[in-house]
C-alpha cells in the first residue's frame, strides 16, 4: 500500500522548471530518502506534497488525498519539518510545544500528554522553561521533530533535518526517525549526507528537477556500478586522474582528497600491472591499491557526472 503516489508533478517558477515531471510512490511505513544536490528541487517537491505550494501541473495523493483538490485533508495527515524550521528562539521549550500543539488543534489533557512525550524524546524533561534559543543544535532539531509530529501524523516530511548538526546528534536523530518508522509513520527525508541515505529503505535521486535513479541502496549499487572499484592512493592524484582516463580498462574515475576511485572493467590487468603503467608511462607512484565496496557516494558521483557510459 502506498502512502504517497506522485504522478507527473511539475512546478515552474516563471520559465524556470524547478520540478520536472516527476513520478514515484512511497510505501506505507517506509523511510524514503529523497536525495539531490543544492537546487535539485527537493524542497519544492516536499512543499507541493504538503499542500502549501500549488503544482504547475500533475498531481499526487498523500494518504489517499489529492494535493491539488484536498489540501486541507492532506494537511491533517502530515507533519512537516521545513528546511528553515528553527522553532521560536524567543519562546521557552514549553511555550513552543504549547503553540504548535495549539495550532494543530490539541488542548487540555491531550496536549499535556503529547507535551510530555515531546519533552521526553527531545531529552528536555524538566527543562521546559529554558529559552529555545539557548539550546544546542542537536537538541533543537529533536524538539523541532517532536513539535512536527505532536499531532501524530501518518506521514512525516523532513527537509534536511540534520543539516548543520554534529555527527553524534545526527546518529541520535536517526534513531528517533527509526523509532517513528517502526511505529508505522511513513517518512520522506531529504539529506545531503549520503551515509544517512544508507538508513533509508528506498532512495530517489533527483537532479535539476528530474528523477535520475531510484531503488534500494543495494539495487542502486549493483545497477550502476559494474565491475570493481579500486581505491588508490598517490602523490599526485590530480594529474594521475587525467592520465588514467585514457586507459581502456578504466570506465570512470572520481577523486576523494588524495585518493582516487577507479571503476574498472573486465579488461583490468591486475594491481601490479597498474602500478607499472603508472610508474613507467606517467612517472607517478601508486602508494596503495585496495578493492572497496561501493558507497552511495560512488553511485551518485557516477550518475551525476553522467560519465558512466563510456
Amino acid at each position: 500500500m502506498n502512502s504517497i503516489e506522485i504522478s507527473h508533478l511539475t512546478k515552474k517558477f516563471g520559465n524556470f522548471v524547478s520540478v520536472d515531471n516527476i513520478s514515484f510512490n512511497v510505501k506505507k511505513g517506509e523511510i524514503f530518502g529523497f536525495l539531490g544536490a543544492n537546487g535539485a528541487g527537493k524542497s519544492t517537491t516536499i512543499r507541493m506534497l504538503c499542500g502549501i505550494l500549488a503544482p504547475t501541473s500533475g498531481d499526487a495523493t498523500v494518504n489517499g488525498f489529492s494535493i491539488t483538490k484536498e489540501t486541507e485533508k492532506v494537511k491533517k495527515s502530515i507533519g512537516y519539518m521545513s528546511q528553515k524550521f528553527s522553532l521560536y528562539d524567543d519562546l521557552t521549550v514549553g511555550e513552543n510545544i504549547d503553540f504548535f500543539g495549539g495550532v494543530y488543534g490539541l488542548y487540555g489533557a491531550q496536549l499535556k500528554a503529547r507535551k510530555e512525550w515531546t519533552l521526553e524524546i527531545s531529552d528536555l524533561k524538566g527543562k521546559e522553561n529554558l529559552l529555545t534559543g539557548s539550546l544546542p543544535g542537536g537538541i533543537k532539531q529533536r524538539l523541532a521533530l517532536g513539535t512536527a509530529v505532536i499531532h501524530k501524523p501518518a506521514i512525516l516530511f523532513l527537509d534536511e533535518p540534520t543539516s548543520g548538526v554534529d555527527p553524534i546528534s545526527r546518529r541520535n536523530f536517526w534513531d528517533l526517525i527509526n523509532t517513528l518508522s517502526s511505529d508505522g509513520t511513513t517518512l520522506l527525508v531529504t539529506t545531503h549526507y549520503l551515509e544517512e541515505a544508507e538508513f533509508c529503505h528506498n532512495i530517489m535521486l533527483i537532479n535539476a528537477g528530474k528523477i535520475i535513479a531510484g531503488g534500494t541502496s543495494k539495487e542502486l549499487k549493483s545497477k550502476f556500478i559494474k565491475g570493481k572499484i579500486l581505491e588508490i592512493e598517490s602523490n599526485n592524484p590530480v594529474t594521475l586522474m587525467e592520465d588514467f582516463t585514457a586507459l581502456p580498462f578504466i570506465n570512470d574515475i572520481s577523486i576523494f582528497g588524495k585518493k582516487l576511485h577507479l571503476f574498472v572493467n573486465e579488461l583490468y590487468p591486475g594491481d601490479e600491472q597498474l602500478r607499472k603503467i603508472a610508474y613507467t608511462k606517467y612517472e607517478s607512484e601508486i602508494i596503495s591499491v585496495n578493492q572497496i565496496t561501493p558507497t552511495l557516494e560512488d553511485v551518485f558521483i557516477h550518475l551525476l557526472e553522467g560519465s558512466h557510459v563510456k
Partner: peptide, 13 residues
C-alpha cells in the same frame, strides 16, 4: 523571514 510560517501553514489553523 524565520520560516516558521511554513510550519503554521501545514497545521490545522
Amino acid at each position: 523571514e524565520r520560516g516558521t510560517i511554513e510550519q503554521i501553514n501545514v497545521s490545522s489553523i
